[in-house]
Simulated assay, not measured.
Amino acid sequence: MDNNTEELKHRMRGKVGNRCQVGGIELAVLDNGPAKGSRIAWIDTGAGLRYKVLLDRGMDIAEAFYQQHSLAWMSHSGPVNPQPMSDRGIDWLRTFGGGLMTTCGLCHVGGPEDDGFGSRGLHGRISNTPAELVQVDQPDPLMGKMDFCLIGEIFESQVFGPHLLLRRKISGTLGNPSLRVEDEVINRGNTQAPHMLLYHLNLGWPLLDEGAEIVWSGHWHARDQDPNNRIFNPSNNFKACPAPRADHAGSGEDVAFIDVAADRSGRCFTGVHNPRLGFALQIAFQKKQLPWLINWQHWGTNEYVMALEPGTNPPIGQAKAREEGTLIFLEPGESRSYRLDFEVLHEPAAIEILTKWNSI
């Protein structure tokens, strides 16, 4: 338990009898709009960070706030009910609400494609699959218990396979402006199954704004391989958030594929620092689990978004990954584990350590 949590325990001692005064998990069902009837969980860390988990959308994370400031970009539609048949062509875009985290996979990450192994739509099916909630562990500050978590299972399956199970745990500690996502992907079938996974982390205003700095390090190239790409070229500062761009109207976008750098322990760091707001959002993950980072920039008017996307592969699709020999195959009973750590940094020393990654 870190100093922030210990300080919170000390300040509240003898003054709080109900955990709801401090934070925790609130389960609810939306009653209006395109997500009417969907199950959600609002999680409050008691440290300024709060976020909404979409239980019926693969336990992805929609809105997220630190104090009064939004961290995540939300699409025009926002959260919508799951649409299991959206894995055709680019129909995935009709259900893409943005949010702090949208999961792509579990068998395919990339554009629509057809080959001898099947037909696959944009970014796969998992984010349009409801979770079975198997555990809700609330904090109990009165008893000194400050940790909390949600655990759910999302099954991506069809007759004759593949049968992949995503077991997801979202956790935190009262007093810490942080959250952790721990995933285990298990092949529950009796044959080998292809596997690709990418976390679409969508950040927006006011965390993103002119003067904010995007942080990542590694060898990169523009997705289109054009050395004169309008954003990802050596003469442009593509880690500085710009004003809205007219050339990003409609489907305008630019993307970099990054062979992300890691520290001596194998950890990779990315995020955004906004000096005007006085804090940074840091995201950490293990290189051996997620060796790639994608930087999607779409600075359209009223569609102002930048995504940082750790993944097992770039979003090149199952067919290309198979051709390159980089497609992961899980044997029956085999599993792979992944972890993302989100943390809001407000101490100058911690922010300086994060931003130094841009000089590595």
Rank of each mutant, 00 (worst) to 15 (best):
G300L: 13
G189M: 01
V272L: 10
G189T: 00
I25T: 00
T102M: 07
G300K: 02
N3V: 14
G333L: 07
Q192G: 03
P130T: 06
A243M: 14
D114G: 11
I258Q: 04
G14M: 01
D137N: 14
N229Y: 02
A193V: 12
W92G: 09
K36Q: 15
G78D: 11
W216C: 13
R11L: 03
I360N: 13
N233I: 02
P242I: 08
P275M: 06
P348I: 08
D2A: 00
P244H: 03
W42H: 15
I231G: 10
M85F: 15
V159L: 14
Q282S: 15
G124Q: 06
H123I: 01
N233D: 07
G218W: 08
G17S: 12
N4I: 00
M306Q: 12
L197V: 08
G124Y: 09
E7T: 00
L122K: 06
G99L: 02
M196D: 00
I294C: 08
Q282P: 11
A212P: 00
S171Q: 14
F155W: 15
V53H: 07
G37W: 08
W205I: 08
Q225G: 07
I258A: 07
L142C: 02
D56R: 05
N187F: 10
F257I: 05
L179E: 05
H10Y: 11
N313I: 07
L122I: 00
R223Q: 12
D183H: 09
Y304F: 13
L174T: 04
H219G: 12
P234Y: 14
P82R: 04
M143R: 15
A193S: 14
G252Y: 04
I126M: 05
Q225F: 12
R168T: 00
S217T: 00
P84V: 01
P112G: 06
W357H: 02
L340P: 05
D224R: 10
L166Y: 01
I126L: 09
I170C: 06
I258P: 02
E210L: 13
I351W: 04
L54E: 02
R264C: 12
Q138V: 00
V260G: 01
H69E: 05
G37M: 06
M59C: 06
I40E: 03
K36Y: 14
E331N: 06
R94K: 15
L345E: 05
S77I: 14
Q289P: 04
D226P: 03
V134T: 03
V305M: 09
L354G: 12
N295D: 14
I90P: 10
D91N: 12
R267Q: 15
L49S: 04
S217M: 07
L340I: 09
L340A: 01
